Amino acid sequence: MTDTDRYDVHTHVVPPELPLVAARTAAADNRWAGLRHDRARPTTADVIVAGRVFRTIRDVAYDFTARRAEMERDQVRGQLLSPMPELFATWAPAGAARDHARAFNVWLAAEVAAGADAFRGLGLVPVQAPELMASLLTEAKELGLSGVEIPCTGPDAPLHDSRYEEFFAQAEALGMLVFLHSVGNLVAFSNQLAGSAAVFPARIGEAVAGLIANGVLERHPRLSLLVSHAGGGLPASLARLEFVRGMSPAIDEIAPLPGATYAARLWFDHLAFDAELLRGLAALVGTDRIVFGSDYPFLAGDVESVLRHPVLPEHLDRAVRLDNPQRLFGSLPTPHSAGTPVKEGTPS
């Protein structure tokens, strides 16, 4: 073990062949993400959305041989793999979204099974069709996946809406991890990276605070949730929740415990990008609930040195890089030696 060994719980993957839906479905709507390979650039590919290059990605996103080599070089012991957020496709019709999710889950389960102990995988479920989410979650576990990644809000309702109750109950019953990834509308921003800085922390904080304030985490105390972007603005929301509790005793009937008590049941990646913010998160949820997440391979730059800032608790660096993610990995359903096929649905 070295001072840079780590497990990374916030990493993304992209199937090498996109789109995953039938050709006629993809042709009918060019919002389905596609992947364009160019022989002149063998180590990169372009993600195409709505006829334009949305992002150029490195081969480690879809080539697991290249990915393992880079992990060994960078002393990464294991990764939790989740879909590129553009694959959420929350705008798609329910039937097509179901088939897209199933195809992704079958692909990822096979890759995870072939990756020995290096990987755990998170699949897709269609948040635009809450009535399908629980059954697809069950299928994902049967395939050998450890959970699913979902956007921090549905297209028509927040996650704390009652229509998602069956999904969260099933995730709790199956012991499947739910990774809440921040999303937001960046169309109005002239620079999308700047837009993500403005939007993502606010949206993820709102989502988790909603699950607390509307009693979802009270009803499902064993629900396993991983929160992206270090919870964003969650601390401010929880402070306000405790203040207004005194103004409305009825809050105690919905969420009788302090908001921080519910938050301390969750896992948070460390992507606060600021030592003081990270120290505040550790004070709120505990040093044992923060795990290393890099947004690999999409986020360039150093996200690790912040863990060695002198303002942070003495042992937080090792806890975030190794001890905490090892406990998270150990709590997850393990991959099968081979993925179990599931019956494809009929596209709608």
Rank of each mutant, 00 (worst) to 15 (best):
S228G: 15
F200N: 03
E166R: 15
A129R: 06
F168K: 00
S162I: 07
S228Q: 03
A109S: 13
L137Q: 12
G195A: 02
M176H: 06
S162F: 04
G123S: 11
V183M: 14
A213C: 09
E166M: 09
A114H: 01
E172V: 11
G115D: 11
A113R: 07
G123W: 03
G195M: 04
G232Y: 06
V125F: 05
L124T: 07
S228V: 02
I150D: 01
A109F: 10
A213Q: 13
P151E: 04
V187K: 13
K141T: 12
E131T: 12
N185V: 12
F179M: 09
A171G: 12
L143Q: 15
G210R: 00
R120W: 11
L211F: 10
F168S: 04
I212N: 11
P151R: 00
D161W: 06
L225D: 04
E165S: 13
A169C: 09
L145E: 09
T138K: 14
P201F: 05
P158I: 06
A209C: 09
L108H: 11
A207H: 03
P201Y: 03
G233Q: 09
G233N: 12
V148F: 08
L136P: 02
L226M: 14
V208A: 09
E166Y: 00
S190H: 05
L124Q: 10
I212D: 05
H220Q: 15
A134V: 07
P221Y: 05
M176C: 14
V199L: 11
L174R: 11
A114K: 15
L143V: 01
E111I: 07
L143G: 11
A202H: 07
I150R: 00
G175N: 07
L186S: 05
L159F: 14
G123E: 10
R163G: 00
H160E: 11
A110R: 14
H160S: 15
P221F: 06
V178K: 09
A188K: 14
H181C: 04
E206N: 07
A213W: 04
G123F: 09
L132Q: 12
M176F: 05
G175R: 01
L234E: 04
P155S: 10
G195N: 02
A194Y: 11
E139M: 01
G232W: 07
D161R: 00
R163P: 00
E218M: 08
L174Y: 07
L193E: 02
E111W: 02
A209V: 09
E206G: 02
N185P: 05
E165P: 02
S224C: 12
V208L: 14
L124G: 06
Q170A: 14
L122P: 10
E142H: 13
A134P: 10
A113L: 01
Y164F: 15
L217G: 03
Q192D: 06
